[in-house]
Amino acid sequence: MASPPGDGDRDGSPAESRSVVCGRCGIRSAEPPPLTWTCSVEHGVRRHFCEACARENLRAIEGRLDSDWW
């Protein structure tokens, strides 16, 4: 009997395929990311930022500046 879709039919381990990467520094986190992470939609693409990167660039994030600017 075939396994249901999404039940181990992916390449790599489940932990690797279910991680979120910080759009600035590249650190990985399990999905869903911790509540201290920030999410931004830029040019139709969702980007996540870790707590450290979000804190360093809080004013730019609140000003809705694209991460390319900061």
Rank of each mutant, 00 (worst) to 15 (best):
residue 2 A to D: 13
residue 3 S to N: 12
residue 4 P to H: 08
residue 5 P to K: 11
residue 5 P to E: 11
residue 6 G to I: 04
residue 7 D to G: 01
residue 7 D to V: 09
residue 8 G to V: 06
residue 8 G to D: 10
residue 8 G to Q: 11
residue 9 D to T: 06
residue 9 D to Q: 09
residue 10 R to L: 13
residue 10 R to S: 06
residue 11 D to G: 09
residue 11 D to S: 08
residue 13 S to K: 15
residue 14 P to E: 02
residue 14 P to N: 00
residue 15 A to H: 09
residue 16 E to M: 10
residue 16 E to V: 03
residue 19 S to M: 14
residue 19 S to D: 05
residue 19 S to I: 03
residue 20 V to Y: 02
residue 20 V to A: 05
residue 22 C to D: 03
residue 23 G to P: 00
residue 23 G to K: 03
residue 25 C to W: 06
residue 26 G to M: 08
residue 26 G to L: 13
residue 26 G to S: 14
residue 27 I to Y: 03
residue 28 R to D: 00
residue 29 S to R: 14
residue 33 P to Q: 07
residue 34 P to Y: 10
residue 34 P to S: 03
residue 35 L to H: 12
residue 35 L to D: 14
residue 35 L to I: 07
residue 36 T to K: 10
residue 37 W to Y: 05
residue 38 T to P: 02
residue 38 T to L: 07
residue 39 C to G: 13
residue 40 S to G: 00
residue 41 V to H: 05
residue 42 E to G: 01
residue 44 G to K: 14
residue 44 G to T: 07
residue 44 G to I: 03
residue 46 R to W: 11
residue 46 R to Y: 11
residue 47 R to K: 15
residue 47 R to E: 01
residue 49 F to T: 01
residue 50 C to Q: 01
residue 51 E to I: 00
residue 51 E to H: 07
residue 52 A to L: 09
residue 52 A to D: 09
residue 53 C to P: 08
residue 53 C to V: 05
residue 54 A to P: 05
residue 54 A to I: 03
residue 56 E to M: 13
residue 56 E to C: 05
residue 58 L to M: 13
residue 58 L to D: 13
residue 59 R to K: 13
residue 60 A to I: 01
residue 60 A to D: 09
residue 60 A to N: 05
residue 60 A to F: 04
residue 61 I to T: 03
residue 61 I to M: 11
residue 65 L to P: 02
residue 65 L to C: 02
residue 65 L to E: 14
residue 66 D to T: 06
residue 66 D to V: 06
residue 66 D to L: 08
residue 67 S to I: 04
residue 67 S to D: 09
residue 69 W to I: 09
